[in-house]
């Protein structure tokens, strides 16, 4: 899994790539938790290069969102259709802000 992290408008912009299965999701969760621990509680996760997500991937994002709490947010942008379908079927789209573009995600 590749993770690129940059900062835009005080928001951590996290570009994820690869398959978010059980193994990869655990590593991703650790890295995102590190960001939260460091006080970065506003995140936009770009899913453009993510072609697959399993239950573990969803649980990883849920755990990070719980850690963020009400002090910040975790949003998503640029999802591929297959991944978006998983978010929709699981109802995660009603919990997280999901945006078509990076600009929309940053603006919220």
């Amino acid at each position: 899994m590749e993770l690129k992290i940059s900062t835009e408008n005080d928001i951590r912009y996290v570009e994820v790539s690869g398959r978010l299965d059980a193994v990869i999701s655990a590593g991703l969760q650790d890295k995102l938790m590190d960001l939260v621990q460091a006080g970065h509680k506003k995140m936009l996760v770009c899913m453009d290069q993510v072609e697959y997500i399993s239950s573990s991937g969803l649980r990883a994002f849920l755990a990070v969102a719980k850690k963020v709490g009400h002090d910040g947010f975790i949003r998503f942008c640029c999802m591929q259709p297959g991944v978006k379908e998983v978010f929709t079927i699981s109802g995660f789209n009603s919990i997280f802000g999901i945006y078509d573009t990076k600009e929309e995600g940053l603006a919220g």
């Binding site: 299965d21 059980a22 399993s54 239950s55 573990s56």
Partner: peptide, 18 residues
């Protein structure tokens, strides 16, 4: 078992992990 990361699932399959 899924929460304990022994298995996983997607929209179609149950996946053996650990």
């Amino acid at each position: 078992l899924a929460i304990r990361k022994r298995i996983d699932s997607d929209l179609h399959y149950l996946i053996h992990v650990d």
